[in-house]
Simulated assay, not measured.
Amino acid sequence: MQYKTTVLIANGIMNAGGTETLVMEILRHQTGRIRYILMVHYQGEIQRGIFDDEIRSLGVEIVYIPSVGSLGINEYCRKFKCMVDKIGKIDIIHSHLNANSGIICKAAKMAGIPYRISHCHADIRFRGNRANNLKEEVKLQVLRIFVNKYSNHYWACSHEAWKRLFYFWKKEVVVPNMIDVQKYLSTSKHKQEVKATIGMKGKFVVGSVGRVARIKNYELILKAIAILNKQGCETHFVCYGRFDAQKDAYCKELQQLSDSLGITDKVHFKGNTINVTHDIKAFDVFLMPSITEGFGMAAIEAQAAGIPTLLSIGIPRIVDVGLGLVKFMPFDPKGWANEILKIQACSTVQDVFHEDIIVAFDKRGYNSASMVRVIEDKYLEMIH
C-alpha cells in the first residue's frame, strides 16, 4: 500500500463549536490524499463528543490523551511520545488548541514530528477583574513563548487571531473557517417548517449559536429581548451551544437575569446540536454580541442560510460575505432591540438567491467544497 502523508489533528472534545466545525469539514471533504488521525484531549475520564461516531464513519481513527493541564508538561510529553510510538510515523501535527498548542508542539518535536502547525481560532481576550486579567495575560505570554518556539507553521482563522498569538516576524497564514454552503441554503418555507420542529411555530425567533460563556455576552441579548417584549413585540431567543446550568456560574447568572426581566418563557438554551445546518434555519434574525471573536463561524452559517445578521463590533469584519445581510452594532441593548424591530417590521425581506450565496462564499474561501483541497495542498507543500 502506498504511504499517505499522515496528519495528526489535535483538539478537545468534539462537540459543536466553531473549531470543531472546521475540523469536521476537513474530514467530511477529505480528498483521499491524506491519512487523518484525530487526537482528542480530555480531563478526568475520557469523554465522547457528539461527532465521534461520524468521525469514525469517515474512516478517521480517534485517539484520546489527557490534557496538558491535567498532567503537567513533562508527563504530557511522555504520554504523547508513547502514543506516537503506537501510531507510527506522523508527518504533521495540526493543533487547534490556541495558546496550548505550544506545549503540544513541544511534545510533537520531542516525538520526532517534523512539521508542527499551531492554529489560533480566537482573538484571545479576558473579561474579569483587573487582577485576574493580568494573571491570564501573563499566562498567555508564557504560552506564546512555547507556541512560537516549538511550532514551525503559524495559522489562524483571521488576522486578528493571528497577531494575538504569534510573533510578528513569523510567516502569517490565514485559513478562514468554512462550511458546506449547500447544506445551509434555505427559503421562507423551510424556515416555517423548521420552526415547527423546534417548537417555535408562528413565533418570531432571534437566535445564536455558540457555547454559553461570558465572552459571548448573551446578557445583551436578554436585555434586548426584554425591551422588545415590553413593547409588545413578542420575541423568542433560541441558543444552541454547550453549557452546564448546574456548574457554570455564568449560566446561573443568565437564568437569574431572565427571571428578573420576566422573560424566562421567551429564552431557550437548547444545548449542543449536531443539526445546526437544519436548526439555524428557524431564526428570523441571527445575533452575535460577543465581546470578541477570532472569527465568528456561526455568523457565516447564518448568512449561508440567508438570515439577517447582527454582530457586535468585537467580530472581525471579514465574516461579512457581502450579501447585505450583516450589520455591526455597538454594545447597546436598546440599539439591538431597535434593529431587531426594524427587521421584524420589514415586510419586504426576500430570500437571497442561492446562486449569489454560493458565489460569495466561494469568492472568500468560506465554502468547504472548494477549500479543503487548498488546505490539503498546504499540507503536501510542507513535506515536499
Rank of each mutant, 00 (worst) to 15 (best):
N338V: 01
L287A: 11
V359D: 12
Q231H: 02
P333Y: 08
Y76C: 02
I179P: 06
D53G: 07
K216M: 11
H153Y: 13
R116G: 07
V174T: 12
L325C: 07
N11C: 15
I62K: 01
K252W: 02
C105M: 13
Q256M: 07
R125H: 13
H119M: 08
K81I: 03
H384K: 13
L323F: 04
Q141R: 15
T292Q: 15
I227L: 11
G294Q: 11
Y36F: 13
Q255T: 06
R125P: 02
M200C: 12
S258Q: 11
C346I: 01
I357T: 12
A298V: 11
H121F: 14
H354Q: 10
A299K: 02
P114S: 14
A299I: 02
M178P: 05
S260D: 08
D259H: 04
C105Y: 08
G199M: 02
M382G: 06
W155R: 00
S312Y: 10
Y36E: 02
K189A: 14
G128T: 14
F237H: 06
K363D: 04
G314H: 12
K203M: 02
Q231M: 00
K163Y: 03
L311N: 04
H278D: 11
G207P: 01
S260E: 08
S186Y: 13
V147N: 13
Q344K: 10
F80Q: 00
A196Y: 04
A224P: 01
K135R: 15
Q192W: 05
V267R: 01
K149C: 02
K247Y: 12
I225V: 12
Y167K: 15
S368D: 07
H121N: 14
R35Q: 12
F243M: 12
D248E: 09
M371H: 03
I225P: 00
Y154G: 00
C77F: 00
L325P: 01
T309F: 09
I179N: 08
V181W: 09
I375F: 03
P289C: 07
R373T: 09
K201V: 09
M1I: 10
D351A: 04
V359E: 08
A10E: 13
K270G: 03
R28P: 06
Q344V: 00
M382F: 13
R211K: 10
G294C: 15
S118M: 03
G18D: 06
E339A: 01
K252M: 12
R28T: 14
Q182L: 11
H29E: 11
V359P: 00
F328N: 07
V326A: 14
L254W: 06
N129I: 15
Q30V: 06
K223L: 06
E293D: 11
I37S: 03
I104T: 15
K378I: 11
K201C: 08
V142F: 11
L261Q: 01
R116F: 10
L257H: 03
V205Q: 05
R242E: 12
K149T: 06
E339S: 00
V359G: 02
T21P: 07
Y64E: 09
S158D: 08
V326G: 08
K4H: 08
C233Y: 05
G18K: 07
E137H: 13
A304R: 11
V173P: 04
M24D: 06
A360S: 10
F361C: 03
L287M: 10
Q256N: 10
E25T: 05
I318K: 05
G32E: 06
A108Y: 06
V23C: 03
T6W: 06
S118E: 02
